Simulated assay, not measured.
Amino acid sequence: MFEEILKYLGIYLLACLKSIFPPLLGPAAGMSNFEIIAITVAGLMTSVLIFNFLGEKIRTDIIPFFIKKPKKFSPKTRRMVRIWRKYGVVGVCFLTPLILSPPGGALLVAAVGAPRKQVFLYMLLFGLMWATIWTYSVDWLIESGLVRR
């Protein structure tokens, strides 16, 4: 029982960092597709909740503690600004599970002051979409024999 809890907790915590981990690791752990999708979305939404509510505090208090002299415009920040200007809230929420990490996407939308309800809705919808696509893609690869379980 304790091992099962640790298994689910570990994959959930990885989902908080990057949404692709549960679809890749879930089949090896013996999880069903529904469990994998649920854990993926739960991890994504946990990151979004934490970083959306604490995003400004993290940016002003915690990051300067670790980075003494932050660069104003690094290549990474320029890319984030370009993504935001080009695609807006919907585009960032769409790209967060795919390209950005859940903390990165949540910090980006929190930094620009996007409406929280809109962010939560789009992150949930796109998180479900990507989790389903990835889970069934990995399942198809396993079933077709291209990848071993």
Rank of each mutant, 00 (worst) to 15 (best):
M1E: 10
M1A: 14
M1F: 12
Y8N: 06
L9C: 06
L9G: 03
G10P: 09
G10R: 08
G10E: 07
I11N: 03
Y12D: 01
L14R: 05
A15G: 12
K18A: 12
K18E: 15
S19A: 15
S19E: 01
S19L: 12
I20D: 02
P22I: 07
P22A: 03
P23V: 07
P23I: 04
L24P: 04
L25K: 03
P27E: 06
P27K: 01
P27A: 07
A28Q: 08
M31I: 06
S32L: 07
S32Q: 06
N33L: 07
F34L: 15
I39D: 05
T40W: 08
V41R: 01
V41N: 04
L44S: 06
V48T: 14
I50C: 07
F51C: 13
N52T: 14
K57H: 10
P64Q: 07
P64K: 02
F65S: 11
I67Y: 11
K69M: 05
K69S: 13
P70W: 01
P70V: 01
P70L: 00
K71F: 03
K71T: 12
K71H: 12
F73D: 13
S74H: 07
S74G: 15
R79N: 04
R79M: 15
V81T: 09
R82Y: 13
R82S: 14
I83A: 05
R85W: 06
K86S: 13
V90C: 11
V90G: 00
V90E: 10
V92C: 08
C93T: 09
C93V: 03
F94Q: 10
L95W: 10
T96Q: 09
P97Y: 07
L98Q: 02
L98Y: 01
L98K: 02
S101W: 00
P102S: 09
G104V: 06
G104D: 00
G105F: 00
A106M: 06
L107F: 01
L107W: 00
L107C: 05
L108Q: 09
L108C: 10
V109L: 15
V109G: 08
A110E: 09
A111P: 00
A114V: 09
P115Y: 07
R116F: 14
R116W: 14
K117C: 04
K117E: 13
Q118S: 12
F120V: 07
F120N: 03
F120Y: 15
L121M: 11
L121F: 15
L121H: 03
Y122H: 12
M123Y: 02
M123S: 15
L124E: 02
L125D: 05
L125S: 09
F126Q: 05
G127A: 09
G127D: 08
I133G: 04
W134I: 04
W134E: 13
T135R: 10
Y136S: 08
Y136G: 09
Y136P: 10
S137C: 11
D139G: 06
D139L: 04
L141G: 06
E143M: 08
S144I: 05
S144C: 07
S144Q: 11
S144F: 10
G145I: 10
L146P: 00
